[in-house]
Simulated scan of single mutants.
Amino acid sequence: MDKEMEQFESDLLESVRQMKAGKAARVTYVAVPPLVEVRNRAGFTQTQFAALLGVSVRTLQEWEQGRRQPSGAAKTLLRIAERHPEVLRELAESS
């Protein structure tokens, strides 16, 4: 067995021992990109949000992952979504 697998098994067993002993589990924090926070705060899935913005889901994913940047009208709509998510929710309801 390679060292990585041995370390994984060791870490897993230690975590189980800690849980059984009632000790707090490790906490992992994940940084969420700002655009994802805006979408989540507005309460939309990627598919819903992309449709509201008039872009493909793939384009939205690339924005969320930082591979591309929105421009023009999309940038303006994203600022509105950030400051006033209720406006997008109203827009979605009226569609």
Rank of each mutant, 00 (worst) to 15 (best):
H84G: 04
Q46I: 01
R26N: 11
P85M: 00
G54S: 13
Q7K: 06
M1E: 11
L52F: 02
V38K: 01
S71K: 15
S95W: 10
M5P: 00
V32H: 02
V27T: 14
M1A: 15
V55E: 04
G72N: 00
E37L: 14
R17P: 00
A42H: 05
L52G: 02
L91H: 02
G54A: 11
A24K: 14
T47E: 14
Q69V: 02
F8S: 07
D2Q: 01
K20N: 06
S71P: 04
A81C: 07
K75D: 01
T76E: 05
E14C: 05
M5D: 06
G22F: 08
P70H: 02
E9S: 09
Q18L: 13
D11R: 07
E6P: 04
V87G: 03
R67D: 09
A73F: 08
A73Q: 12
E86A: 10
Q7G: 00
A42W: 06
G66H: 00
E9P: 04
L77C: 01
R58K: 14
K23G: 11
A81Q: 03
T28W: 04
L12K: 07
S94G: 06
W63Y: 15
V87R: 13
R39S: 00
M19C: 05
V32Y: 03
H84N: 12
R26W: 12
E64S: 05
D11P: 03
R58T: 13
W63I: 03
A74M: 03
A21E: 15
A31E: 15
A21D: 12
G72A: 01
T47V: 14
Q48N: 08
A25V: 09
T76C: 02
Q48R: 10
A92Y: 11
T76V: 12
E14G: 04
V16Y: 08
K20G: 06
T59D: 10
P34R: 14
A42N: 01
E82P: 00
P85Q: 00
N40Q: 14
A92K: 07
E90R: 15
A42Q: 06
A51P: 08
Q65P: 03
V30E: 13
